[in-house]
Design a binder for these strands. Structure first.
Lengths: 245, 245
DNA sequence: CGCGCCATTGACTCTGGTCAACGCTAGTGG
DNA sequence: CCACTAGCGTTGACCAGAGTCAATGGCGCG
């Protein structure tokens, strides 16, 4: 168990030195980029890491800002998005525990990121991280694998946005989120949906009304049950069929 | 000048030993992944490379097939796409000279690729290439930069597919293609469009009819002139305005 | 010359968007 | 303790942008 923490309201509370999220007992180590590191390297990167907490709705970084830091998410959920000048928004991904933000290592962020739930991260200064990376090709290799995986997810999302109906989008969204939660140890049939309907709509290229109507339709036909902050997937086979059609 | 070549109809004609596309006088070296290599390394990779020609409409590789090779495109244009079981297609990108196919280095291809025009590539066995990569971290770093750039393009495409109108999609497509052609030395106001209307539609998440109508509409309003296998961008400012709105 | 492929255009349809009303819940303050 | 409000989600009625279906045109090729 971690020690109980007093959460304050200021964004990005740094927890360094509080014995929090030390690499040694990091819950996401095996599934994060850090899995590429041996015990000695783990102590090295531990000393570079700044464990930090972001309360729900706070901003991790904003598109076009100088990329001073990169992040390894240890807990919570983050939305990554781009805005058009007139305010239209496209969410390009939801980041979960184990995900890495700032993969591109560019000097400016390509997207904006804010916490959906209370979120904990390991923050690294980008310069320190890239310097460490230059000494550890196997870590770079792992980072490249993560980036390739992201690219693959992005291509799947292009298929969804370009060629799928509203029903299929919702089904595919539920299936892929279920699989991602399973990877981080949450295997329940009840899928938490901490993001708002607007977030889901902006991820799937729909409107909030269409998302709501589609949930209702799926609920009426018995394949899901809508519960507060989530859905119960009562007919997985049917959802999978819709998702992969 | 290269020696004149007799093109035969067989796909994937190997030009090895014909003095074609040697790294020393490779036209795309400075903009491709190879720019990370010094002269000595260039001779090393030269010996791994199989210069190969793919005639228009031939297949480079197919989604889910074992990824035996990776490719550096030196000339031509390739479409990368995914298919749904019922035949719906989403083109996830057009690859031009200087682009690298197989960035993910996974053991199966994540997309299918076929040549739109006659295309020349440097083909590498994936195992040989990854072995070389293990000795050259700076090449891995360059590959990672390429993958990150691809990811960024994919995110832009998600915004386009999720949140832009047909007019905006066409305008954004023309602008980004123009910029990519400019990078490889083609700066004319007349933009070649070697791909079919169906290809454009499947890239932009539209139908062939909507693409055609939108071209006609833009032509009628004077911002483009449709020419055989391309368009002349007669009012760049207007197109850019539409594209970034 | 005539066939086949691709692109264009028109008429009509439909999926998903827009606009609006309403309900539920949590938070606030009298 | 409850009235009031604000924010989010749901639902209904209507609308419009893009899709579908079909006819026609243009061009390259055998």
């Amino acid at each position: 168990m971690e020690p109980a923490l007093q959460w304050n309201d200021s964004p990005a509370a740094c927890l360094h030195g509080l014995g929090v999220s030390a690499c040694a007992d990091c819950r996401v180590r095996q599934i994060s980029v850090c899995a590429a590191l041996d015990p000695h390297e783990l102590t090295e990167i531990d000393s570079l890491s700044h464990p930090t907490a972001f309360p729900a709705k706070s901003t991790l970084f904003t598109q076009e800002d100088p990329a001073s830091a990169v992040f390894n998410i240890t807990e919570g959920m983050v939305r990554l998005y781009k805005l058009l000048p007139d305010g239209r928004r496209q969410i390009v991904g939801f980041a979960l525990a184990g995900d890495f933000l700032g993969l591109a290592l560019l000097d400016r962020y390509g997207v904006s990121a804010d916490a959906i739930t209370d979120t904990k991260v390991c923050r690294f200064s980008r310069s320190a991280f890239t310097a460490f990376l230059d000494k550890k090709p196997h870590l770079l290799r792992r980072l490249h694998e993560f980036a390739s995986h992201e690219l693959s997810l992005a291509q799947d999302q292009m298929v969804l946005l370009g060629r799928r109906t509203a029903d299929e989008r919702i089904a595919a969204f539920l299936m892929s989120l279920k699989e991602r939660f399973a990877r981080i140890g949450h295997t329940s049939i009840t899928l938490p949906l901490p993001m708002s309907r607007q977030d889901i709509a902006d991820f799937l290229g729909l409107t909030i009304e269409t998302v709501s109507r589609t949930f209702s339709k799926l609920a009426k036909s018995g394949v899901i049950v809508v519960v507060p902050d989530g859905v119960r997937l009562t007919n997985l086979a049917q959802i999978k069929a819709l998702a992969t059609r």
